[in-house]
């Protein structure tokens, strides 16, 4: 397969399930080799902000500005709501900073992510993005505030209602969280750059390991159903947005970083066909970049 046929496969797979897809892949090796399909276009990023956030946190720890083992008390009344991890628990808990990062990456835990964002701060994160050449990426708010925006724009009330409102099949429900100029936003190429940074430096080992532990294998992972192939990924989901950025490691080959950002025509929360298409798209992009070490 060549780059051109990969692009055609990506377009076909996207059209076949009714999504827009923005794709970028790069081999993390000595020679620059990339596949891109709208990889430079700005897309609202949903939970993908947790990826640069983890990288920034990891650099701050390496610099001695933060203590990875410091214990954080996360109280039941104050933490961000969410479907997984600390966000889904009932009682007060205490975790270390690095375990909060682990939960944020492996389960997309919103409560843990809120703790990490508080530690790092939006200002330090913005400065980190600029320093590392991620000029298109802008993190305006964390998941908790994103959902507050959605709640407010879709009729107020309980945050638990908001995902159901976005999933209304009879109305085209809009939110500024779908607008790259108003929401936190990135490009597929920028997400690949973040992964490249994480794979460059030894001190990011804990972050890489947490990505390997990600609980979901339904998106990019579905394109690589091989027990000996490493999939180090982070998903991002909000309404019609379904994203994942991942590094794929075939044994004895250079790792390949790939980001697949999508927006579906269908509004429903569960869309296995789209998740599988993201896997097929990632496979098409990664396959042309595979090279032995």
């Amino acid at each position: 397969m060549t780059g051109a046929t990969a692009a055609a496969t990506i377009d076909r797979a996207a059209a076949d399930v009714g999504i827009q897809a923005w794709v970028h892949a790069r081999r993390l090796g000595p020679d620059l080799d990339e596949v891109t399909r709208g990889g430079d276009e700005l897309v609202p990023m949903a939970s993908l902000y947790k990826l640069p956030l983890a990288a920034c946190w990891s650099d701050l720890v390496a610099d001695g500005a933060l203590d990875a083992t410091e214990r954080l008390r996360v109280t039941a009344t104050q933490r961000a709501p969410g479907p997984t991890g600390l966000a889904a628990l009932l009682d007060d808990v205490e975790v270390s900073q690095r375990d909060a990062v682990r939960l944020m990456l492996s389960l997309s835990d919103n409560a843990a992510a809120e703790q990490v964002l508080d530690l790092v701060g939006l200002d330090r994160l913005s400065a980190w993005l600029t320093t590392h050449g991620l000029n298109r990426t802008i993190v305006r708010r964390g998941s908790r505030d994103s959902w507050s925006v959605v709640v407010e724009e879709t009729g107020g009330g309980d945050v638990g209602e908001a995902p159901r409102r976005l999933a209304n099949t009879d109305v085209d429900v809009q939110t500024s969280e779908y607008n790259a100029l108003l929401a936190s936003a990135t490009t597929a190429a920028d997400m690949v750059t973040v992964l490249g940074r994480l794979w460059e430096a030894e001190h990011h080992a804990m972050v890489r390991d947490s990505l390997r532990l990600q609980a979901w294998r339904h998106r990019i992972g579905s394109g690589f159903p091989h027990d000996d192939v490493g999939v180090y990924g982070k998903t991002g989901t909000l309404g019609r947005l379904r994203h994942e950025a991942a590094v794929i490691e075939f044994p004895h080959e250079h790792p390949v970083a790939v980001a697949v950002l999508t927006k579906s025509a269908r509004p429903e929360t569960h869309q296995p066909r789209v998740d599988a298409a993201i896997g097929a798209i990632a496979r098409a992009a990664v396959t042309v970049l595979r090279r032995p070490l």
Binding site: G18, D172, K263, A265, P267
Partner: peptide, 16 residues
């Protein structure tokens, strides 16, 4: 038909 990918076009309300 709705839903469809209609980005870049003006789309009116959904009729059921």
């Amino acid at each position: 038909r709705h839903p469809a990918v209609v980005d870049g076009l003006a789309a009116g309300p959904v009729h059921t």
